[in-house]
Design a protein around this nucleic acid. Structure first.
Lengths: 120, 120
DNA sequence: TTATTATATGAGCACATACTCAGATAATAG
DNA sequence: CTATTATCTGAGTATGTGCTCATATAATAA
């Protein structure tokens, strides 16, 4: 058992493991991008929006009616999902129809469902 | 174009779509469980922990040294990950070695990486 | 042009959460 | 038993975030 004090007072028991793990570490930017994606899926309103859009495109009004929250709230969430390129939209007159940007959301939800069904 | 005011002042443009979406809606409990899982992956410290454990089991000290945060902070996060059955541990004397509970975390991270790499 | 409809957006607030700190447990050594 | 080591945990705090409200913008209709 080995003790080592560095400036942040961290004890390190297995230096070799820590060193190896550092080789494999994700960059800060990649980590943050991944977290933003997962965080987007980690809110009930946004997850419901994405789940609804997996089946067919919908407008802001429809999503607000479905989730029983304000259109403003939906719009705020859609902006975030747009920024993360999880949804896209197309305009038809004054109406904006939103849809999933790609297959990844569906895949992520499906795997997470597998997980929660196996641990219950 | 159809206007309909219910008690929560929501306009619904496409009643049919909303009705269909309601049939497919996830239950509240499933939604919350999914969100908790994604939220767990949506924090940089927890994601780094999970990413490290994907390669090999590690103890609290090692993870604290790797992430350069306190052991207490690591322990708090590991408790959450344990509750969500994302990690497991085994005891060897006073040391607890943590590892991933199943394959789902790896799969989720891999798909999320695909997503962020395709949108850059 | 003005009016209407659908959506977007900034500010503010209430609640959630990730950390620190102090102290409690659990296993082992002497 | 006591001392030490590794980990856990509750309370407090600072930051983050999801909503509401008011207002702005964009496309269409009259």
């Amino acid at each position: 058992m080995k003790l080592e004090n560095d400036q942040c007072q961290c004890r390190t028991i297995h230096d070799d493991k820590v060193m190896e793990a550092r080789q494999r570490e994700l960059g800060e930017e990649v980590t943050d991008d991944l977290c933003q994606t997962f965080k987007a899926l980690g809110d009930p309103s946004r997850l419901k929006i994405l789940w609804a859009l997996e089946y067919e495109e919908m407008c802001v009004c429809d999503l607000a009616a479905l989730l029983r929250i304000s259109e403003s709230a939906v719009s705020h969430q859609l902006r975030l999902l747009r920024t993360l390129r999880l949804v896209k939209n197309r305009r038809e007159g004054t109406i904006l129809y939103y849809r999933l940007a790609d297959e990844h959301v569906s895949q992520l939800v499906r795997i997470a469902m597998e997980h929660i069904s196996e641990i219950k």
